[in-house]
Amino acid sequence: MSSIWIILTGALIASSCAFLGCFLILRRMAMLGDAISHSILPGIVIAFLVSGSRDPLPMFIGAAVFGLLCTIIIQLLRNQGVQADAAMSVSFTALFSIGIILISLFTQQVDLDLDCVLYGEIAYVPYDTWTWHGIDMGPRAMWGAGAAFLLSLIIVRLFYKQFKLTSFDPALAMAIGIPVAVFHYLLMGLVSITTVASFESVGAILVVAMLIVPAATAYLLTERLGVMLGLSVLIGTLCSICGYFLSVVLDASIAGCMTMVAGGLFALAFLFSPHQGVVTRWWIRKKLRTQI
């Protein structure tokens, strides 16, 4: 039973990350997931110090606030003419360091495992269950990831046209009166919430991987946004299932194996994608040459 819970949680996390990752890739902000997942550390520590417990809700709020704060700082710096990559690394490294300093200042009060934040351990997910009216509803992390996924699905479905246009042609979107900044921050908010809901169980690195790799794979396979969104969710789910079984075989970290599977799928798409693969293009060129 526990393996089904792990696969299901992993699939939900991978799907919700991959879904939003498509928009990040199209907006050329792929590294934002990395920045957000590092910068939520001070939020978690502060929430822990204020609430004095390991309750998930205050931690969730603290982390989401700092995730959003990080994107706001990045945007402010970019508006002041700072190069995009510099704006990103300056803000997330500073916030992460503040988090570490806070942890070392309040070592006695804070019982947070730094390794756990970065690596995460999805194998423990089934033991932290949510009981509702005395009924065991399954792992809490699964419900969190599911809720985040549902929220993104609803919001993106509602404003699909606007998200599409602001991702592909922000200048046109602005010209016809779509509030580009509002949709930017809406997306950032969704990414923050999804990152925060996922990282506790799978670690920051898997969140970054799932935000980028399945979406990039889907990007190579299609030229339509709708298809890309569907494909990336499918690939994310596949990564979760294959990654789990690979981890059983190799006796290694589940999150790491899921990332490896995602990387492998990307490599396949990179080489053999029907229109854009390196090998397929080479093959088409060779066929053309013999025809001529």
Partner: peptide, 10 residues
């Protein structure tokens, strides 16, 4: 970044 680090964790 993520693929290499994931491999490293494995």
């Amino acid at each position: 970044l993520s693929t290499f680090f994931g491999f490293g964790i494995v």
